[in-house]
């Protein structure tokens, strides 16, 4: 029996669906993408642009389709469904990764003790009604004690003992306890995150502190003579900066020394120690009660100032 014809036909078929390239095509089946890294053939590109683009695209897609059809498949009504491998290309995410939920106090305890989580059904079987009812919530089984028509009362109960109210109070107390624990868990997480340095309002606090520091040094005396409030803290981190460089400082100090070494000016010397006995400037000041020579002259002249004041 001659099978060469069959083999040739098979080879022919294979040829039609295989693609030969100098550089093998890079296929990312997860993203249904194929990249052809062969350089563009300038000659055929210039000759027939659309035809060239389509033929390269066909080759690439043929290889991609070949890769997709060789993946493991499951059948469905619409046709085979190929199971894709995870993509090899890395694309940036649109949102940050979700943060894991912080464990509650109970979860921490259960983990330390090795307690396995057991899922509790939401429904329980009601023998009387012969049907599944909610464990809690609407028509919940936890309200049976409050709704039943007859309740046993212990013999030593108070006169005003209301078994329905007692059951209801107990249930409400459980709810309140759960809510309290929930709030404690939230507060614990908040505290932990604040300790790690990223409190939600840390920025705002810093901003307020900075504004306060600015206002405290914004009075005429730069805050030196301000009345401090009770419990007000000293400003931290305020330092005077020397703005002068070493050279400038040196020349400044030298100038001061030179000034000191210089003889007192003629004017000053005359006024301060003219005749030796009387210091005229001081005498005027004492006589005018610190108001100066002009005021003294006015007063002695006719008391103009007094009249005006009245």
């Amino acid at each position: 029996m001659d099978v060469s014809d069959i083999l040739a036909a098979h080879a022919e078929k294979q040829k039609a669906v295989t693609v030969e390239k100098d550089i093998p095509l890079v296929i990312d089946a997860g993203f249904l993408t194929v990249t052809d890294l062969n350089p563009v053939d300038a000659e055929s590109y210039n000759e027939d642009l659309e035809g060239y683009l389509m033929s390269t695209a066909r080759d690439g897609i043929q290889a991609l389709v070949g890769a997709l059809f060789s993946l493991p498949t499951t059948s469905s009504e619409e046709g085979p469904i190929a199971q894709l491998p995870p993509p090899t290309t890395q694309l940036p995410r649109a949102k940050p990764l979700p943060k894991p939920k912080p464990p509650t106090k109970w979860e921490l305890f259960a983990k330390a003790k090795g307690i396995q989580h057991r899922k509790r059904d939401k429904k329980v079987w009601d023998e009387e009604k012969q049907e599944w009812v909610n464990r809690w919530g609407w028509k919940g089984a936890n309200k049976d004690k409050e709704t039943q028509w007859l309740t046993e009362v212990p013999a030593n109960a108070d006169v005003d003992h209301d078994p329905r109210k007692a059951a209801r109070d107990e249930r409400k107390a459980r709810i309140a306890k759960n809510e309290r624990q929930h709030q404690q868990n939230l507060a614990r997480v908040q505290g932990a995150s604040a300790q790690s340095g990223t409190a939600p309002n840390a920025d705002r606090k810093k901003q307020i502190d900075r504004t306060l520091a600015t206002t405290r040094t914004s009075t005429a005396s730069m805050g030196k003579f301000d009345r401090t409030l009770e419990g007000e803290k000293k400003l931290k981190g305020v330092k005077r900066k020397a703005k002068v460089s070493a050279d400038a400082e040196k020349s400044r100090d030298l100038a001061i020394i030179q000034k000191l070494e210089r003889e007192p000016s003629a004017k000053k010397a005359k006024s301060s120690s003219g005749n030796g006995v009387l210091n005229v400037r001081k005498a005027i000041r004492a006589a005018s009660k610190g108001k100066g020579s002009a005021a003294l002259a006015r007063e002695s002249g006719g008391g103009k100032g007094k009249k005006g004041r009245k």
Binding site: P39, T56, E78, G79
Partner: peptide, 21 residues
């Protein structure tokens, strides 16, 4: 990122090519 694709639903191609380098 998808884990499976219906092979009959592969209908179109976006081809991005460059002019000669």
């Amino acid at each position: 990122v998808i884990d499976s694709v219906c092979l009959a639903g592969l209908e179109h191609v976006i081809s991005v090519s460059l002019a000669p380098t």
